[in-house]
Design a protein around this nucleic acid. Structure first.
Lengths: 104, 104
DNA sequence: TTGACATGCAACTGGGGGGTTGCATTATGT
DNA sequence: ACATAATGCAACCCCCCAGTTGCATGTCAA
């Protein structure tokens, strides 16, 4: 359950923008991802590698190009993890409420 | 929709641990949050302020203590945001598939 | 009142990572 | 074959931030 690296990766604005772009326009090359990104191509490459380390994207060679695509699995893991956290919070509040009422 | 600061805040291990501890054991003081955290009390304080900036926690004075509690709203916002992203990804794949089939 | 506990404030440090530039490599197409 | 396009690799800079230490402030309890 390596959700921490994923959260850390998504916590950077440039990387979040890359993920969004991949979501909106589907799999694409580094060159296309760099367009309008506001940072250099190498910067984009570094971020893509970071996203890869976090298990959020995958790459496929296609001739001289390199096509990157999202890995929605890891994204879902993060979602479920956050849901689980929220649930624990609700449970804790319930226990506290019960404990207070018991004292009367 | 300021989900980026929240993601960034959750992307740090110490801060994620704090959130988890708050979820499991309910609202608590800085001193209690510092126990077993592996970092100094001031370190914990800084992280709590970061979480506050991100809208993830709230504080309430209680005598000489300061009780911090989770703000589950922002957590839900993040969850919904990620869900929305995933949806866009699915839509994009659907469009691509349709486009490919049209070419035949 | 006085000591002990809980927190606040300020200054400092080190390392990591975001971003860049320059050059090398490989593939495409005409 | 050759010019161009897409990418890889490596070194470099610099700023931000996690974490610390030291001291000041405030509050509880005897």
């Amino acid at each position: 359950m390596k959700v921490l690296p994923a959260l850390s990766a998504l916590g950077d604005e440039s990387r979040l923008q890359l993920v969004i772009k991949l979501c909106r326009n589907g799999p694409q090359s580094i060159a296309r991802l760099t367009e309008g990104a506001g940072i250099s191509r190498q910067g984009v490459t570094k971020h893509l590698h970071a996203l890869h380390e976090a298990g959020l994207v995958r790459r496929e060679r296609s001739g001289r190009e390199q096509i990157w695509r999202l890995e929605p699995k890891r994204l879902d893991e993060v979602r479920r993890y956050l849901a689980q956290i929220s649930q624990q919070w609700d449970d804790a509040l319930e226990r506290l409420k019960a404990a207070v009422e018991k004292e009367h």
